[in-house]
Nucleic acid binder design. Structure first.
Length: 280
DNA sequence: CATATGTCCTGAGAGC
DNA sequence: TGCTCTCAGGACATAT
C-alpha cells in the first residue's frame, strides 16, 4: 500500500471530504473541521509505514495515518464500489488528483496526528520492532519467554509489528514450525528459521502486491488484484496436499479465534523438554 | 504482569 | 425463494 501511493509525494492537498458514517463516527480524529483546517494546503513530503498502517507525512510535520485493518484500501484510482468510500483527498501538482480511503466493513480508520501523538500511539510502548527490520536475536529476545503458541505470538503487534493472520501461517509453514508450539519451547535454530521465513514471505508478498482472497476485497492502489494468493503454501488450502511433502493434507485449526493452516507432517510439534522430565 | 476473550463491522455462503 | 446463522481478522477493551 505504501509503495502504491508513493507517486503522490510532492503533491499538495486541496480538499478533504469525509463520508458521513452513522455507525462509526470516530472514523476520523480530530473532527472533520479541524482535520480539514490542518490538512488543506499542505504538501505531502513522505509516504511511510508503521506496522500495518500507512503514514502520509505533511510539510507541517503532522501525519495522516491510514489504518486499513481488514478491508480498508488506500487508492489513487476509482474504488471497487462508490459505496463504502470513507475519505476523499483532492490533490494538485502531481499525476494523481485524488487519494481515497475505501473500507467495506468499516473497521479501519484514518486519523491526523502531531509528532507527539504519533510517538504516543505508535512508539515502542505500543508497537514492537518492524517485521522487515527485526534481527533474529531481537525476535527471539522478545518472544522466547512467552508461553503462548508461536502463531498467536506472531500476531501480537506489541511483540512484533507487521505480521497478520494470513502471513503467520505462511511463515510457520516455510519455517517448518508447528503453529501451536509454545514460544518457550522453540530452539535457537527454529527462531532463525522463523526470522528468515518472515523476511522471505513478507518480501515475496510485497513483490506480488498482496493477496486478493475469495471475497476479492484486497486491491492495490490502482484497484488491481494482488497475485500472492496464487503462491500461498497453506493459507485457505485446507484439504489440499502440502506443497512441501506432497503427502499430507493441509489442516485448518483455530487459535485465538483465528484460522491457522499447517501441515502436520512438515510442522512437527516440538518435543517436550527432556530436562523437566529428567529432573523428577 | 501475562494471557485470554469479547466487540465492532459487512457481505458471502451455508443450511433449511 | 428468502430467511437466519456463522464466519472472515484487524486493534483494542475488558476479564481472568
Amino acid at each position: 500500500m505504501r509503495r502504491g501511493i508513493l507517486p503522490i509525494v510532492g503533491s499538495r492537498i486541496e480538499d478533504v471530504q469525509a463520508a458521513d458514517c452513522a455507525k462509526r463516527p470516530i472514523l476520523i480524529a480530530p473532527k472533520p473541521a479541524a482535520f480539514r483546517r490542518r490538512v488543506i494546503g499542505q504538501k505531502i513530503t513522505e509516504i511511510g509505514r508503521v506496522g500495518k498502517r500507512v503514514v502520509v507525512r505533511l510539510a507541517s510535520s503532522d501525519a495522516m495515518i491510514f489504518e486499513p485493518r481488514m478491508t480498508g484500501l488506500v487508492l489513487l484510482a476509482a474504488p471497487p464500489t462508490i459505496e463504502h468510500l470513507r475519505l476523499k483527498v483532492a490533490l494538485s501538482g502531481g499525476k494523481h488528483k485524488e487519494l481515497l480511503f475505501w473500507d467495506r466493513r468499516g473497521l479501519g480508520l484514518v486519523r491526523l496526528v502531531t509528532p507527539r501523538e504519533f510517538d504516543k500511539l505508535y512508539g515502542l510502548e505500543k508497537l514492537g520492532p518492524d517485521a522487515l527490520a527485526v534481527t533474529s536475536v531481537e525476535l527471539r529476545d522478545r518472544l522466547a519467554t512467552s508461553r503462548r503458541a508461536i502463531k498467536v505470538a506472531l500476531l501480537d503487534q506489541r511483540a512484533l509489528a507487521g505480521v497478520g493472520n494470513l502471513y503467520a501461517s505462511e511463515i510457520l509453514h516455510l519455517a517448518r514450525v508447528h503453529p501451536a508450539c509454545p514460544c518457550d519451547q522453540l530452539r535457537p535454530a527454529q527462531w532463525q528459521a522463523i526470522h528468515a521465513a518472515i523476511l522471505e514471505v513478507l518480501n515475496l508478498a510485497i513483490r506480488y502486491e498482496g493477496s486478493t482472497l475469495g471475497d476479492g476485497t484486497y486491491r492495490n492502489a490502482l484497484n488491481e488484484q494482488g497475485g500472492f494468493q496464487n503462491h500461498h503454501r497453506v493459507y485457505d488450502r485446507a484439504g489440499e496436499a502440502c506443497p512441501s511433502c506432497g503427502k499430507t493434507q493441509i489442516q485448518r485449526i483455530v487459535q485465538a479465534q483465528r484460522s491457522t493452516f499447517f501441515c502436520d507432517r512438515c510442522q512437527k510439534p516440538g518435543r517436550k523438554r527432556r530436562a523437566a522430565a529428567a529432573g523428577q
